[in-house]
């Protein structure tokens, strides 16, 4: 059995068009086992499988997206993140990814704990509610903020838990989690100063503290 020739490594962002995907692509080590929660139609998983040779699995609630993911060869099952992890044995994966979905789960703290039970490490990416545009939008309009990052009217939004970088750090401390790496992004750029004001998206790599 011959291994397929290594595929060229296009910069992840060029392929997928999302800055948090780029960072996740940087974090994930080759030949690992990865579970992506809320994986959509599996584009990140398909990329990781092709370029990092990971054993890629996903969970997605939308049947239509699951169909597309399976059609592109990714093992995705239709299910709910809030309750979907209970079946997995402990430490089943090297990484469990939750990309831009934490704020949509009913029980984010429980989901985080479950992710850390089934995975050695957890990668969480979420939009930063503390970004200056959010603050300004609310201050000036006097209404629930609507920005490029949070474009929905309050009654249509899938986002039910809003958090800033500080909020996530607080939760990590409360849960005794070890933050191994943190990335702050604005568009395609990394943010180095005043991240809670300037970052649109944060990506955290966390593990259970020893």
């Amino acid at each position: 059995m011959t291994a397929p020739a290594p595929k060229p490594q296009p910069f992840v962002r060029e392929l997928l068009g999302r800055s948090d995907y780029r960072i996740i692509g940087e974090i994930v080590e080759p030949n690992t086992k990865v579970l992506d929660l809320g994986c959509g139609d599996g584009e990140l998983l398909a990329w990781l499988a092709a370029n990092k040779r990971v054993d890629a699995r996903g969970v997605e609630i939308s049947g239509v997206k699951v169909q597309r993911a399976i059609a592109r060869g990714v093992s995705v099952y239709q299910g709910d993140i809030d309750e979907g992890l209970a079946d997995y044995p402990d430490r089943a994966f090297d990484y469990v990814i939750l990309s831009q979905t934490l704020q949509e789960t009913f029980h984010p703290r429980k989901v985080l704990r479950e992710m850390l039970r089934v995975g050695q490490r957890v990668i969480v990416a979420f939009p930063n509610y503390g970004h200056w545009r959010m603050r300004l939008s609310m201050l000036l309009s006097g209404r629930a903020p609507r920005t490029k990052l949070f474009p929905y009217a309050w009654h249509e939004s899938p986002n039910i838990h809003f958090l800033t970088l500080h909020d996530f750090e607080d939760l990590a401390a409360l849960e005794g989690l070890k933050v191994e790496r943190r990335y702050f992004l604005s568009g395609a750029h990394k943010v180095t100063v005043l991240p809670n004001l300037l970052a649109e998206v944060a990506v955290y790599l966390v593990s259970a503290s020893a």
């Binding site: 699951v66 993911a69 995705v76 997995y88």
Partner: peptide, 10 residues
């Protein structure tokens, strides 16, 4: 899943 087998479902 409980045995961590590779499974897709829809």
């Amino acid at each position: 899943r409980a045995r961590n087998r590779d499974v897709a479902y829809v």
